[in-house]
């Protein structure tokens, strides 16, 4: 199971890097989304996939999942949700002002202001 997860995370990271290196802003944003998904899955895997019962203490349950990685993922998801929403708004504004979503044309230097 860990191996499968590792491959999945690797695929996610690969796709994320590919998308982030592209020129369109929207693709880059999707790439950052994939990157954070990969990171979240990595936390889950790194915390250990064992444990069959939910981490709620009740009688007779000994083999429960580690609750900490789940709490971390929830926090990280909320944060990446907020940041992604913010970049989307920003990309939209940048597109409206610059009339382009091509990062090559958004390079800019001091002479072009």
């Amino acid at each position: 199971m860990e191996l499968l997860m590792a491959i999945l995370i690797g695929v996610l990271f690969t796709a994320a890097v590919y998308l982030i290196l592209s020129r369109s802003i929207l693709k880059i944003i999707i790439g950052t989304g994939l990157l954070s998904h990969g990171a979240h899955l990595l936390i889950l895997t790194m915390g250990g996939l064992g444990g069959s019962a939910p981490p709620v203490l009740s009688d007779g349950v000994t083999d429960f999942a580690d609750p900490l990685p789940q709490a971390l993922i929830l926090t990280a998801i909320v944060i990446s949700f907020g940041v992604t929403a913010f970049i989307l708004v920003l990309a939209y504004r940048a597109y409206a002002v610059h009339k382009t979503d091509d990062m090559n044309q958004l390079k800019g230097n001091d002479e072009h202001d």
Partner: peptide, 13 residues
């Protein structure tokens, strides 16, 4: 509050 604010600021334009 924050999610709707974001939607409004994109959609309002």
């Amino acid at each position: 509050g924050s999610a709707i604010t974001i939607i409004q600021s994109i959609g309002g334009d």
